[in-house]
Write a protein that binds this DNA or RNA. Sequence first.
DNA 1: CTGAATCCCGTAGGATACTG
DNA 2: CAGTATCCTACGGGATTCAG
Lengths: 127, 127
Amino acid sequence: MKLGIPHGEVEAFACPVTFTVEVIGGKWKSLILYHLMSGTRRFNELRRLMPEVTQRMLTLQLRELEADNVIARKVYREVPPKVEYSLTPLGLTLAPLISAMRDWGATHEHTILAYRENPKSDNSTDK
Amino acid sequence: MKLGIPHGEVEAFACPVTFTVEVIGGKWKSLILYHLMSGTRRFNELRRLMPEVTQRMLTLQLRELEADNVIARKVYREVPPKVEYSLTPLGLTLAPLISAMRDWGATHEHTILAYRENPKSDNSTDK
DNA sequence: CTGAATCCCGTAGGATACTG
DNA sequence: CAGTATCCTACGGGATTCAG
């Protein structure tokens, strides 16, 4: 995910939070990392785990994660081809974060979905 | 951030991770939450804390967070107007997550930026 | 001061087809 | 099997102006 930082500039980000968002902030990156937390996965394995992601987007996001050294891509020169993706040591350090995201979502998903359906209308207290 | 779920459908997401991404996955949402963790902030206060965010985007993302009951918006009917944003109890539960993002970024930012400049070229081990 | 309203654009992301 | 290669569109996001 590109931010407003000039290309090729090794410049400190305004805030570390912003940097983290840049690394795992893609639409599918967190989910990819989550599925890799349980072990090495082949390309089509990931596709099956995430049916909503198109093949193209999966490839792109995998490449971005690879470019940040968060995941490793290992190609087996066989027929048929085989490619395995796994977390790098750096990627492993993200595991607690991804787990926290999963836990938070599991805990509050229901409440938030309900709130969206029926938001509080009692702003009257302010008036 | 919209995902491929039909509007108005209170349907469980494929994975809680995806849901969390939807809530805090906007380009600036995590950063907004981070700044609200240190206390209530006025609109222009947030603008000053995040100069790269345009006024329009700040407003939009604040509204989305509000719609998910993650932040609260309190309007003081004065002249000049005054609006305060703060974390709701639900938003507070995100604090550990945001902190973890900040810590991770602070810890690994340098390494990753360096890696981007000079990625490993020794894929030769596989061949 | 805190927005809303417009206008505009780049690109993230989707659908589909083709390939080593 | 694991991708490219195109094509296309929606929306994220910027700049500017107007308003209560």
